[in-house]
Design a protein around this nucleic acid. Structure first.
Length: 574
RNA sequence: GCGCCCUUAGCUCAGUUGGAUAGAGCAUCGGUUUUCUAAACCGAGGGUCGUAGGUUCGAAUCCUUCAGGGCGCGCCA
């Protein structure tokens, strides 16, 4: 249920029915007419711009038209007790008691699904996809949480969602990774000094992986790299993926599907995809221009296969073959996305780090080419995370291999705080993450603040010896709400709209913001009893007003739904 | 040189896909507790929405110009 949608439907139906009386001719579309929350100072439940929009289309004075609509509504719809025409022609509407009660009842009867925007599409979200050459670092966490919460959100609405991880387990980087492990094994087993070369991985974890491989391959001598290569690749990959999966698990993230680049090649999916593009004349043999900007010494003018991605909005066509004729990373990714298209997803989402901004156009172009524009790929880029400690930038050391890992973060900060804070910004802007702030138990820390409101509610119900799921019956004869309660109720009514925009625009950050605002209203409501005893909720162990209970259950319900989408826990006691 | 993102209060940011007097938090100043959890609340000050134009009844929001910041720009992955 969505109070704005319901009422826009009622109002537009009424206008349609009375269009002659209103002298309206242009009624073919009601586009642009909305019902939303009016600014707080007006003290109304809903506002509607029908007078403005229709007045403009039909060349009627908006105020005059709004006034007619006002009387029409008051006469025909019982949902409203008071309507004013305000400003340039807005209708501000106040819900009747009956309507308030029935709206509250509807939510109380459908707590688990309150806010759900029904949808049953098939989504694939690819996220994290960190290189399988070591554990996750802090930078990966933001995209990881963004993708996971997006998945939760879309699932909450009823969609089918596959959470996918693309493992880049093919090509040079894996050989270099295996070589690094090999050299570390030589170091451990034969005391040979590990000399760091370019392209090798220096991290401490390589030593750990080496030790594990030695333990599980006691007979292996590791004398010849070429001979051990296949074994080393397989084993090293297994261990590094385990590290990554462990990190993900601690962040509360579990993927449904891990898609291997190596298998993609082995199954000839790239060739199939390229053949498809060839058939449709989207590729050609040719030469590309040298890259602009910094000169590239390795650039060679060689005839090669090129994807005509400019046909689909890219800035330049893209190479599918390297100098030696083998497929580029991009070509492999084309094969991968062909497979996604063939798996019949309706929507594809790729969550990428800021360093992949330049990549989005070509892969989006590829999906358009592969699906004849039927499947929509949406690349969402998460901007950088800047770490702070005590308000000062926490610099990542430039020493090779020394990076701040997801584990480092998890050692200091709990999962709940990381998840909430990483989403407390739009993915489009850089995010400051302060190690100390997220640990604070105060209003400065939004995670805490929201959790605390729920703890207070739990405590209240404990005092009352009641359960959040107990039935609440509101009596129309005595029903009354004070200022705080009305404000809260209006906020609660906005919840479905938050879900809708968060899920259609892929903007989960709206949820933490909203929850913070709701928590603020709750704390304010609660604290009023400190100033004035008459605003205390309880007297002699019993609730004074049944409406209070209803309002508080509504708050708790929305906070529960919101936090469960965010994947953040809600302690009963703090 | 090109692409993407950003520019809103001293600081960090929201701003419901064109609406009403632009909102939070932090910081600053002042107030509230023998408690249903003060780990909280209440109040005050603080703005030329980067610049210059355009579109219209109406722009922080849409279009164009310019300036500033970030990321990226290989036939690496």
């Amino acid at each position: 249920m969505n109070i704005f949608e319901e009422n826009i439907n009622k109002i537009t139906a009424l206008i349609l029915k009375n269009q002659k009386f209103l002298k309206l001719k242009n009624l073919n579309e009601f586009k642009g007419i909305v019902v939303e929350s009016p600014p707080e100072q007006f003290n109304y439940d809903l506002s509607c711009n029908a007078g403005l929009v229709l007045g403009k289309m039909n060349k009627i004075d908006p105020k005059e038209l709004a006034d007619k609509i006002k009387h029409l509504i008051l006469k025909n719809l019982k949902d409203f007790q008071d309507i004013e025409v305000a400003g340039p022609g807005f209708l501000n509407l106040k819900l009747s008691k009956q309507s308030l009660i029935s709206n509250i009842d509807k939510i109380l009867k459908n707590k688990k699904t309150y806010g759900k925007k029904n949808s049953n599409k098939n989504y694939n979200i690819e996220f994290v996809s960190a290189n399988p050459t070591g554990p996750m670092h802090v930078g990966h966490c933001r995209g990881a949480i963004y993708g996971d919460v997006l998945a939760n959100l879309l699932k909450f609405n009823g969609n089918k969602v596959t959470k996918e991880y693309y493992i880049n387990d093919y090509g040079n980087q894996i050989n270099n990774f295996a070589k690094s492990v090999f050299l570390r094994i030589r170091e451990i087993k034969y005391n040979e000094k590990f000399i760091l070369e370019a392209d090798l991985y220096p991290g401490e974890y390589i030593i750990e992986i080496g030790k594990k491989i030695i333990d599980s391959n006691k007979k292996e001598k590791f004398n010849d790299f070429a001979q051990s290569l296949e074994l080393l690749k397989k084993e090293s990959l297994k261990h590094s993926m385990n590290l990554i999966k462990l990190d993900l698990k601690e962040l509360g993230i579990e993927h449904d599907n891990f898609f291997s680049e190596r298998k993609l090649i082995e199954n000839k999916l790239v060739d199939k995809a390229i053949n498809y593009l060839k058939k449709n004349n989207y590729v050609q043999e040719g030469y590309l221009q040298p890259p602009k900007g910094e000169a590239d010494k390795t650039w060679k003018k060689i005839k090669r296969l090129i994807f005509k991605s400019t046909l689909f909005g890219d800035d330049t066509d893209r190479a599918l073959q390297k100098n030696d004729g083998s497929w580029t990373y991009f070509a492999n990714d084309v094969g991968y996305h062909m497979d996604k298209v063939n798996r019949n997803y309706e929507y594809l989402i790729n969550v990428l780090g800021a360093d992949h901004t330049g990549y989005t156009k070509r892969i989006t172009a590829a999906v358009n080419a592969l699906s004849e524009n039927k499947v929509k790929l949406n690349c969402k880029v998460c901007q950088l995370v800047k770490l702070y400690k005590n308000g000062k930038p926490f610099k990542m050391s430039k020493r090779a291999g020394d990076f701040i890992s997801a584990q480092d973060l998890l050692n200091e900060v709990n999962k709940d705080s990381i998840r909430f804070m990483m989403l407390n910004r739009s993915n489009d802007v850089e995010l400051d993450f302060d190690f100390d702030k997220v640990l604070e138990k105060s209003k400065d820390n939004p995670v805490f603040y929201v959790q605390y409101s729920f703890a207070r509610i739990s405590s209240l119900f404990k005092t009352l010896n009641k359960d959040l799921d107990d039935q609440i019956r509101l009596d129309p004869k005595t029903f009354t709400l004070n200022d705080n309660e009305i404000k809260i109720l209006r906020k609660v009514f906005e919840w479905p709209k938050i879900i809708e925009t968060a899920s259609t625009k892929y903007e989960p950050h709206k949820i933490p913001y909203y929850l913070y605002e709701l928590a603020t209203l709750f704390h304010s409501y609660w604290s009023r009893g400190n100033d004035d005893q008459s605003f205390k909720f309880i007297k002699d162990g019993k609730i004074k007003k049944i409406e209070t209970l209803a309002i508080i259950v509504l708050i708790a319900t929305v906070i529960q739904r919101g936090m469960s989408i965010l994947g953040v826990s809600l302690p009963n006691k703090m």
